[in-house]
Design a protein around this nucleic acid. Structure first.
Lengths: 346, 346
DNA sequence: TTGTAAGCGTTATCAA
DNA sequence: TTGATAACGCTTACAA
């Protein structure tokens, strides 16, 4: 690999001149400048990464730690972060902790497991001297990720930072629950059942809170019997559908699309049809929601916006020394209802 | 950040002793060894990445260039590559070219566009001095990626390398087409329609070739009228379904699940049912295939195996100086038929 | 406008 | 068994 020294020899100038041309730091005569650039281009010179990193403080690299690349939320978020950083001339480096591969469903709230892979990941990024770290969670919860005295700018993406020192970018679950409930009410529904995720989950809690607000505003009593808890998976949707239908609800709001698909399974088996015999709404706008029949009305999660927003904050912090105001920096990105054919007007 | 020099001072030894303890290269008295390790642990010393990289030739990093992280094939392949490398104590660094984001569907065969982002990506990895490069394509085709005189071990994943100097790990499309056709024949079908992808696509061509072989073996004439070309997207499945059904085929083999979903759309509209009125088979085993009703019988693409296999070859090349035998190194990983409810016995 | 030289943190070579 | 020192490629302060 060609070095500045070799270029200097070829051009008959000193190596600092080469460096100066390349970085445009000092006045260099136009003639030598052209000559140098010509040789640089011809030889395909690339600065040695390590030498540069060693010399400078900044690396212009932003480290991304993903809990799990396989989670459906991760690729679109990371894609946008990378795109934004690229536009701003920052490089990114991705560390995939592969939590699911390592521990299946058992890691969410096991601090020990998380820390055992997180700490090496952070150390690795620090030794690479990244300018900032973005933690991309697999789902919303409080994550205790960075110590309070962490001296590298860091952002929590798609989850809440335990420490108020770090900004979080999350979806607005409460508004999401509120909006969908209002939508169902607008469609004439007053007996609305819910198939929620696990009860201890933040998404679950906030969405139900939003629902309560919408019901209250319309003076519709909140009926706890109509709130059933699943486990985010399809069979639990199937399982809870029966009871809810027996209760006589006219609409079922599933807190994710997968459980909504489970409800569809139940309906299919009992010769019923979403949007005809009963109304179904989902959450996530996963690919499958467009393939269910009738297509599922659902709440789209704005992964792109989450990625962009979080990258924006990071770059702003880096370039303008933008400081996170303790406690105030939780950016909530709203979801968007995608109206399809599974909710009928009654 | 603490350095070897500081540790040396703390221990009252020279810095080369520290280095030797850390790398276990030379005999060091047990006493000093313990003392050094103690201080290292207490201070949380981390070797400076850049200094190390500058000094050593090897970095133990494998670079992954992804055409597009958003392609559904990419995350599972990359996940397995990362897992395998991690097990073998190699680090990975991922560059996402984001081809789709940049050019939508227009980049597949536009060498100029590809090279304009590929070359910087390769240069970046070379300047990081990665030990090897794995190119993860978004779909199968011949890719002209590395020059013949490329001196870093490189592997083409999920596509064919233009140059025989580099190993390729691909799916066995011909066998996939063959297997599914045989399966349909076993189920009693002799009039089998195909909704293929674009005609110039390698997946398309090889799968149809496999089908021909299976038909020939059973002495069933190949009827070109029953081969229709779509564009891999759902509406094209819908579009081609009609003609094929009019032709009186008893089964339709769709070369991806998305087009099979299009056929389902057509059936749904015409009050027909897959697995009852006609048999449908897909390809890919995308998530949706399990959600279609009746669930779609399809051919699963072994992303995990592709990832593992390619990573294995890379590590083997690196550690054993394993050399690619020109022309002979195309690893074909078989697909696996996932039998569901969309194909009936006749 | 250009060149010289120090220094970043590590490893490797050689000498002690 | 240990220590001094050169070298890796680059940036930058200072000298010319």
């Amino acid at each position: 690999m060609i070095t500045q020294k070799e270029i200097a020899e070829m051009c008959g100038v000193s190596i600092s001149t080469i460096s100066n041309v390349l970085n445009g730091k000092r006045k260099v005569s136009e003639a030598t400048r052209q000559r140098v650039l010509e040789v640089v281009r011809k030889t395909g010179y690339q600065p040695n990464y390590f030498a540069q990193g060693m010399r400078k403080q900044k690396t212009n690299i932003i480290g991304i730690i993903a809990e799990d690349l396989i989670q459906f939320s991760s690729p679109p978020i990371i894609e946008r972060i990378m795109a934004y950083c690229e536009d701003m001339h920052y490089r990114t480096i991705l560390i995939n902790m592969r939590m699911y591969d390592k521990w299946r469903d058992t890691w969410y709230d096991d601090e020990g497991k998380l820390q055992s892979v997180l700490q090496p990941a952070i150390r690795e990024l620090l030794s690479i001297k990244v300018d900032g770290i973005m933690y991309v969670a697999g789902h919303a919860r409080n994550v205790d990720c960075f110590p309070d005295d962490f001296d590298v700018p860091a952002i929590m993406v798609y989850a809440y930072s335990e420490s108020p020192k770090f900004a979080s970018v999350v979806i607005d679950d409460e508004k999401g629950g509120y909006d969908m409930t209002r939508y169902l009410i607008t469609k004439g529904h007053r007996k609305i059942g819910v198939i929620a995720g696990t009860a201890d989950n933040l998404h679950t809690q906030k969405r139900i809170l939003g629902m309560q607000k919408a019901l209250y505003e319309e003076q519709i009593p909140y009926n706890p019997d109509w709130i059933r808890y699943g486990d985010w998976k399809r069979p639990s949707g199937y399982r809870e559908a029966e009871g809810l239908i027996r209760e006589g609800v006219t609409a079922i709001f599933c807190l994710n699309d997968d459980m909504a698909a489970g409800v569809y399974d139940y309906l299919y088996e009992h010769d019923m049809k979403a949007g005809v015999d009963i109304s179904i709404a989902g959450y996530d706008n996963m690919e499958i929601s467009e393939y269910l029949k009738p297509a599922l009305t659902t709440n789209e999660i704005p992964f792109s916006e989450i990625g962009i927003k979080s990258a924006e904050i990071m770059i702003k912090t880096l370039t303008e020394g933008y400081e996170v105001k303790p406690g105030s920096e939780i950016i909530k990105v709203p979801c968007r209802i995608i109206e399809r054919d599974s909710v009928k007007q009654i």
